[in-house]
Design a protein around this nucleic acid. Structure first.
Lengths: 194, 194
DNA sequence: GTCTATACGCGGATAGAC
DNA sequence: GTCTATCCGCGTATAGAC
């Protein structure tokens, strides 16, 4: 079915979000103007407001979408029986998922302070839910005697910080393949908790 | 010795840098205006340009000063004999140093992309020099058979990411004291490399 | 749905008086 | 060294034509 000339609602919307994601990741939310985003999409600045009420919503939608993707992808992972296997699966999942979308990961860390207080709270809740999954694994392993963890909260944050650090240096086609990277990090995580 | 009225060069300069540090850390470099900085210092915007040629230099000086402080403080640490002791000293030093100046640490991570290419290169060189100190410790320990490290480069970055992560959650007066935090992280680092 | 035009304030930086 | 005044471009967002 032919559409009215100039009607691209279904494809322009996603392109606006993609352009915003890329530009926010490159220059930072505060440094990117609506005009730049419009230019990247190939429309005039005014047209953006058909797809977002304002710039803040653009940022929030990107971060919310990223956290939703993260939690649902984690939920879709195959179940494992032992804490040891669950920790390995979590480690490999975290590395893979984060390396697949470096821009979203980047702005999810860097632009939190540019969210309004209400939006910030919502994203933080999702982040804490993700951390809770790892902490539960550590608690289960400690309770069954296979892990030795001084403090599950701190160890949770330490492991996530270590794993997310991959994004600062990994480049596909570099010295190490993704499976090699996963193996090296899993080795470190495993030793940290045993 | 009395000075000319309005002459405060020796104290206003530092106050400008302090205000910039605090505001950049809170809102981000791009989101902070020279007028805001001036207001925090208690002068008019034009007066700032007696202390910095422009906003970019203000950011660069903060990051450069932080990296210089980091490297000279590390150099001032007592020498240790074994790789094991050197790694423990590095771990505790890193945590202590970073927790003492959370704002400088924060902007040194977040605002790198707002440096001009030349300024960025200079800061990156200093950062790599710091990482080199840790990597040397790991190499020495591996060569003498006390450490088991799959990849010294990655382990270096993983340890630093893990340790710097303390800054995201630690608050003085919280559940854990600084010595307790140091002990927990040193325990994790130690296990990671042995 | 997109365009052009525009309102209106804030941005970095400078000039010149005191 | 600091002030006031100012240049001038860019910021978000909106109005109204097509």
């Amino acid at each position: 079915m032919a559409r009215t000339a100039g009607s691209h609602s279904d494809i322009t919307g996603p392109r606006v979000r993609e352009a915003a994601l890329s530009l926010f990741a490159q220059h930072g939310y505060a440094a990117v103007s609506m005009r730049q985003i419009a230019k990247e999409v190939g429309v005039q600045a005014g047209a953006l407001y058909n797809y977002t009420p304002d710039k803040q919503s653009l940022l929030f939608d990107l971060l919310k979408g990223h956290m939703d993707d993260l939690l649902s992808a984690l939920a879709d992972e195959p179940r494992q029986d032992t804490p040891h296997d669950r920790l390995e699966a979590f480690t490999r999942f975290h590395i893979r998922f984060h390396l697949e979308r470096p821009q979203a990961v980047f702005i999810s860390y860097m632009e939190l302070r540019n969210l309004t207080p209400e939006n910030f709270t919502e994203i933080e809740d999702l982040r804490r839910r993700y951390e809770g999954v790892l902490e539960t694994i550590l608690c289960d392993g400690r309770d069954s005697g296979v892990f030795h963890v001084a403090d599950t909260k701190i160890t949770t944050l330490a492991i996530i910080a270590m794993l997310t650090g991959v994004n600062t240096w990994y480049r596909s086609g570099g010295r190490l393949s993704l499976p090699e990277v996963e193996a090296i990090y899993w080795d470190m995580v495993r030793k940290t908790v045993t």
